[in-house]
Simulated scan of single mutants.
Amino acid sequence: MAMPFTGDRIILKDLGFYGYHGLMLEEKALGQRFFIDLECGVDLSGPALTDSIGRTVSYADIYDVVKAAFDTRRMHLIEAVAQNIVDAIFQSFQDVNWIIIRVRKPEAPIAMVRGEAAIELHRQRPTA
């Protein structure tokens, strides 16, 4: 049975990783920095009322899953990097009902003096 929508979320912001994702040969060989912002929709009523770690999803555990998903497979596109992370979170945490993920690439191989390239995915847990 689906939990009622509460708008509650666990937020991890500005997670920094070094990786070899990209289309260009330089990106694959030299690597670059990536930053990830993540919101995971989880009903936080239980932990809010009980103050018990056993009633929530650990943001430290979410980070570990994000890092493993980021590091495990090299991708051409940051859209695929984001989807790989989403899939890993849904697989690891049954209480996560939706995810908003932004993958930012500050050294994208385009002629910009300042800024970054980024994508954002909005995903809901697939229903059976």
Results as ranks from 00 to 15, higher is better:
E107T: 11
I85L: 03
I89W: 01
N84K: 11
N84W: 05
Q83S: 09
N97E: 15
I100D: 04
A82K: 02
L77E: 07
V81Q: 05
W98S: 12
P106E: 04
R104Q: 13
R104P: 00
R102L: 08
V103N: 04
F90L: 11
N97A: 14
E79P: 07
W98Q: 07
D95K: 13
S92D: 06
A82S: 10
S92N: 13
A80M: 10
I78D: 03
K105Y: 00
V96A: 07
E107R: 04
E107F: 02
I101Y: 00
D87A: 11
V103L: 08
N84G: 14
I101M: 05
R102I: 07
P106R: 04
K105N: 01
N84C: 12
Q94N: 12
I101H: 01
A82E: 06
S92T: 13
A82Q: 03
P106M: 02
A88M: 09
E107L: 06
N97S: 12
I89T: 06
I85D: 05
V96Q: 03
N97R: 14
Q83L: 13
V81W: 03
N97L: 14
A88G: 13
I89A: 06
V81H: 04
E107N: 12
N97T: 10
I100M: 08
I100R: 14
L77V: 10
N97F: 09
E107S: 11
L77D: 11
F90I: 08
I78F: 02
K105S: 00
Q83I: 02
E107G: 03
A80N: 11
F90R: 01
V86M: 08
R104S: 06
W98Y: 13
Q83Y: 03
L77Y: 09
K105M: 02
E79Y: 11
Q83C: 06
Q83F: 12
I99L: 12
I78V: 15
A80V: 05
V96F: 07
A88V: 12
N84L: 08
R102H: 09
Q83G: 06
Q91H: 12
F93Y: 07
P106C: 01
D95F: 08
K105C: 00
I99Y: 04
R104E: 04
